[in-house]
Write a protein that binds this DNA or RNA. Structure first.
Lengths: 202, 202
DNA sequence: TTCCGCATGTAATCTGTTACATGATTAC
DNA sequence: GTAATCATGTAACAGATTACATGCGGAA
């Protein structure tokens, strides 16, 4: 339901083509908290036009054929209605955290450290982008957009801090003590070893 | 591809039923960075059994019929292979950030503040959970799991800080200045008003 | 006796991506 | 001249959710 509205939101900035909308999520600030592919965009543009929320602006052929879309009055209304609707709490799907939570003593910590280093590289890139973007002199950020950018900054800094902290802990082999009233960690290792052994015997 | 592996990961802790796996994501720490529904879980359990990665433990009928699954040697291997594979950088879809970025001067700031207050309430709940969980005396967290929990703590604290900062800025009407070399903010408001007016005239 | 939590499962549906097809224009 | 970027679009598929159907056991 929200892809449509995100498209309307992008079009509220300025009339855009499908290609352009994709670029907005690929190379620009919007990509920090949303994304979509061509396979979604073009069919949705068609649908939004059919519903009378957007209309194509016929270009006076500057060479390339392209179809820019603009919001209709109905489109503006729908966009703003969406803005006032309470947003859903973001759904997180974080494979690294999932893996880390189920890591165990028979695994090699070096591998986990490597996962963290990869994550660190991307996070640093994004943080650089977020810090540079608002003052690069060319891109558009509204006053409200600055608050979103600030969110990215705080979140990425927190993440970076955690990554560095975690790598240090793993390297020094000074993991904090968990909570294990039923001795599950030991049971896990025992179950695993029993399984591996039963296989080797067969 | 990852739902299967998340199920294997949960089963690595201890043998579980489908209902149990769901509960793990619903009421426990794993829910902070992953989630899934029954409609995914049961068919996947069937599939994993067919592939020989898990097997059912027949319960000595303690009244209720239930089917607990345990990892096979092959299942342990697959799980650990997955652990060593570099995790994808998490995809973020944050409706609040999307809305905030495209908020504009003709909207009511109070509505945006309300969105932030709702977000704050949930974030505070989660933070309370994250802080309480590792010392509640009953739940299981491995030493590695503590690192994940720490991530949640840092991330949620950063988010809370940002929410409070943003509410304050909006209440005092002291938004920072964005970057707008082409006067897009004015153009946006003009396009919008023209659209609304053209409709009223018709 | 009624409701809630435990427990399993499927069918219909939705939502979105990947991969492909096609072609023009621009920069090197 | 050739690689990259601009540009539109579709078909097949993947992935997951919602809603439903079913039923037991324990608590109030």
């Amino acid at each position: 339901m929200s892809i449509e509205h995100s498209i309307l939101a992008i079009l509220s900035f300025w009339p855009s083509t499908g290609y352009n909308i994709k670029a907005e999520f690929e190379h620009k600030a919007a990509g920090l908290y949303w994304g979509m592919s061509y396979g979604s965009i073009y069919p949705k543009l068609k649908k939004l036009e059919e519903e009378g929320l957007i209309y194509p602006i016929e270009e006076e052929e500057e060479g390339r054929k392209k179809k820019q879309y603009e919001l209709t009055p109905k489109g503006w209304k729908e966009f703003e209605k969406w803005l006032t609707l309470p947003p859903a709490y973001p759904v997180v799907k974080d494979e690294l955290l999932m893996k880390m939570s189920t890591w165990h003593a028979d695994m090699d910590d070096e591998v986990l450290i490597n996962h963290l280093l990869k994550r660190k590289a991307v996070t640093e890139d994004l943080l650089g982008f977020v810090k540079n973007w608002p003052t690069n002199g060319t891109s558009y950020i509204s006053d409200y957009g600055m608050l979103s950018i600030r969110y990215g900054e705080l979140r990425l800094e927190a993440e970076l801090k955690w990554i560095e902290e975690s790598i240090h802990i793993l390297e020094e082999k000074q993991l904090p003590n968990g909570q294990d009233p039923n001795g599950n960690t030991d049971k896990l290792i025992a179950r695993r070893r029993a399984a591996i052994q039963s296989e080797e015997e067969s």
